[in-house]
Design a protein around this nucleic acid. Structure first.
Lengths: 131, 131
DNA sequence: TTCGCTATTGACATTTTGCACATAGTGTGG
DNA sequence: CCACACTATGTGCAAAATGTCAATAGCGAA
């Protein structure tokens, strides 16, 4: 019974997916190669991602018009590299992601606070009126 | 080219999925019917969810052993209702969700802060050395 | 040539999501 | 009784997203 890579421990889903916004932000600093972006993901806690996913996301973003790509002229080593560059469109999408993430953060906060409050009450209840 | 229900506006993915943890938290307060849970979701900003998804999630949670369900004895109106009840297992899973969400929140914060810092620098750069 | 590293891409399986619709009991109006 | 609205839950399917593996490809070293 294959249930993905989450071998039984804990819950089976990840709360957030931030690959696209992180890539957009990274590209807002200036054009970059996929491979470079890939390495910079660790800074954002996305270090365990499979390269294919990053390249795929990049291509999807290009299809949506968020980025453009050209082949790099200079080649230091290895095969030709693509240089990705943010478009104004990508800029807007980044902004909308920031919006979404701000709201998401609020929702998470709400849940987390509700959890802590409830757990506190629960403990007090145990110590006070129960036992 | 159908891309889901996000008709071109903004980005096409949602950052977070919190249905399961919210249901677990709600059930930590005590047993409840699916329909009731469904209505309480709005408090957590999950008001626009399709009922099927909630019931489905509930059944998945039961399959995982996070909750148990029995048919309600009393019937006020409508068909028999299931009462869902959190298990110790579900308690643990909720805790692991809280962990995950705490980390996720940190990641979001990191991205948001990086964005704001960068945008500030960008503006200063525009006003100062550019134009 | 083969090996190892850098870079990118393709193909396929699995998982998740959204939606439409089926089922089912109860109460109301004709 | 029948149609209808409301409460409550469950099924099935199609599309999209995600995860993993393997393929391609250039370059330098052995």
């Amino acid at each position: 019974m294959p249930r993905g890579r989450w071998g039984g421990r804990g819950h089976g889903r990840r709360a957030v997916r931030m690959l696209e916004p992180v890539l957009l932000l990274l590209l807002h600093h200036g054009p970059a190669h996929g491979y470079t972006l890939l390495e910079r993901l660790t800074e954002f806690g996305l270090g365990d991602l499979n390269p294919s996913m990053v390249y795929r996301m990049l291509r999807e973003m290009e299809a949506k018009g968020c980025v453009t790509s050209t082949w790099d002229d200079e080649r230091t080593q290895g095969p030709p590299r693509r240089v990705y560059c943010l478009t104004p469109q990508g800029d807007e999408v980044l902004a909308s992601w920031v919006q979404d993430l701000t709201e998401s953060r609020q929702k998470i906060d709400y849940l987390l606070n509700a959890y802590r409050r409830h757990m506190q009450d629960h403990q007090e209840g145990e110590a006070d009126g129960h036992g």
